[in-house]
Structure formats: C-alpha cells, structure tokens
Design a protein around this nucleic acid. Structure first.
Lengths: 152, 152
DNA sequence: CTTTCTGCAAAGTGTTTGCAAAAAC
DNA sequence: GTTTTTGCAAACACTTTGCAGAAAG
C-alpha cells in the first residue's frame, strides 16, 4: 500500500487545515476504499470495512465518504438509478464512463474532443465551469453476443 | 392545448397496444405535465395536478410518470442529487443540460461534435449505444456577477 | 363482468441526524 | 479538559407497493 500513504497524508492535511481529527475509523475507511478498484456504493464500502473492523458503523462510513469527497479523495460517479457510486479522485485524471446496461461493466474513457466541445458550450453561454458528468449507457460486446445468440 | 392533443393520442395508442386503459387521472397528469415547461419532479407535478383535481393521489402521479417514460412522452433529466426531474420527450429533440450550481437555471444545448465523439467512443469499445446523459454544471452569468460583486 | 386502475397508507430504498459515550488533540 | 467523532437507532427524503373499492373496456 505505497500509494495509500500519500492519500492518507492528503486526508490528514485536509483535516488539520480544518481543525478536524484523524481517527482510526477514518483511516480504515480510506484504506479500504483505496484498496477497492471498482466503483463502490457507500453500502458496499461499509460491508468491506466491516471485514477489517466490524465495530465501525454505517453512519461513519457515509460520513467519511462525504469527507473524502470534500477532501478531493473520492468523487461520485455513475449517477444512474440506485445508490451513488464513488471512485478514487486522488491523483486520478478526469474521465467519463461507459456503462453496460445489461451486466453493469464500466469502461472509463477520456475524449479530448468532448472536453473541448464542453468548454465551448460553457463559453458560449457565459457559464463558469464547475463540473460535468457524462455517462454513456450501452450494451457491451459480451452482452451483445449473448443476447444476439439467444434471440436469433 | 393543440400540441397536447397529439401527445394524448400517442399515450392512447401506447395504452391500447398494451391493453391498458386510458383514464381520467392519466389524461390529467399528462395534460398538466405538458403544460409545464420546466423540468419537474414527480412531487411538483403532483402539486400541480392537485390544483386541477385534488382527488388524484401521489402514487398515481408517480405511476403515470413512469408510464409516460415508457411511452416515450417523458424522460428523466438532470440526475443531480435530490429527486428525479422529468422533461417532455414527445417530439422533443435530444439535448443535454447546462445547470447553474447557484440558482439552478437550466440551459438546454445540443453539440453535434459531442454527439459524434460519443458515437466514436461506443464504436471503439464495441458497445451498442442505448442512451447517454451529459450534464454540465457551472455558474451562470447572473450568479457570477452577483458573487463577484459581493466578494471582490 | 373481467381486468386494470385508483387512493390511501404502509413499506421500501438510500442517506442523514440526534444523542450519549468514546477518542483525539 | 475541551472538542470532535463514534455507533446506534430513529428520522429523513424519495419512491414503490398491497389492498379493497372504483372505473374502463
């Protein structure tokens, strides 16, 4: 967990700055989060955290995730229906998501052309950019084959 | 309400096709929805419907909105936090949204370049397009001026 | 008449919050 | 020591659902 070190440091810096406290539960939630590569819901993260320390409560996980968002260590992604999903934000480049509507597989991508076009939209309406989310939904190659075989 | 006529016809066709029934509440919910230009939540629509017919229940509005979605007359938009918002989908072109993070003002836009780039992303990953949602968040000209004056 | 639809209230998600005890500083 | 944080459970916001009666076809 070399990479985790930096993220934990970043959280401590953020907490110190706001005169908040670094605690065991917060460190554990962050470490478990960093160890999960996929896009997790707070609930899933809670389940994973419980395996490390069953004493940590759900509310603490929800509160810590919010804290991580504020600290720039986590960000919400895939705002489809259902619970919010979070992904790593610390030293992770911006990207968008392509989600399979059948199996839920997620591809992350970056399209400079889209980013440029978005900047043009902001400019042409006089808006100051804050954030943007693009989610493409579709059927992945595997699911397309599966259902094509089943139907045809 | 000339335009509404077509939409009501479209709903009736959809219902007939599925052997479902056209009812007073459904017609009223659709008509009120069509009369609202902004992006409404089901709850807001319920409030508006109550003014026309106080006897219509909240569950009916929620159920009808879902029905309108299935029938292609409404679509969800602006999946930010909070309740889902719906917009007209009947004979309304696809577009994306630019939302002010301060006052909530919504600009609808269409960027062919973005659409083309999205198609490229689908193709390059072998996904079959199903739907996509792009939401740009930023501060609108009015809010920028307001807070700039207040702060500087 | 048979089936679907309705309104109500209750249950269901997913998330937040009030509180007294516990931990950080 | 003072302040923040924790875990629990209760509350919360939004949405769905079970049911008996009402309406549509």
């Amino acid at each position: 967990m070399k990479a985790a070190r930096d993220a934990v440091d970043a959280l401590e810096a953020y907490l110190r700055e706001r005169e908040l406290k670094m605690t065991g539960p917060r460190r554990k939630v962050l470490e478990v989060f960093l160890g999960i590569e996929s896009h997790v819901t707070a609930e899933e993260l809670f389940e994973a955290v419980k395996k490390v320390d069953p004493g940590i409560g759900q509310a603490t996980v929800f509160r810590t995730v919010k804290l991580l968002e504020e600290a720039g260590l986590a960000r919400a992604a895939c705002r489809d229906d259902g619970p919010r999903r979070f992904e790593h934000a610390y030293r992770h480049e911006h990207h968008d998501h392509l989600v399979c509507t059948d199996c839920g597989a997620i591809v992350e991508f970056e399209e400079p052309e889209i980013e440029r076009a978005q900047a043009r939209v902001y400019r042409s309406h006089g808006y100051e950019p804050v954030a943007h989310s693009l989610e493409l939904r579709g059927r992945c190659p595997a699911c397309r084959r599966g259902s094509a075989a089943g139907r045809a």
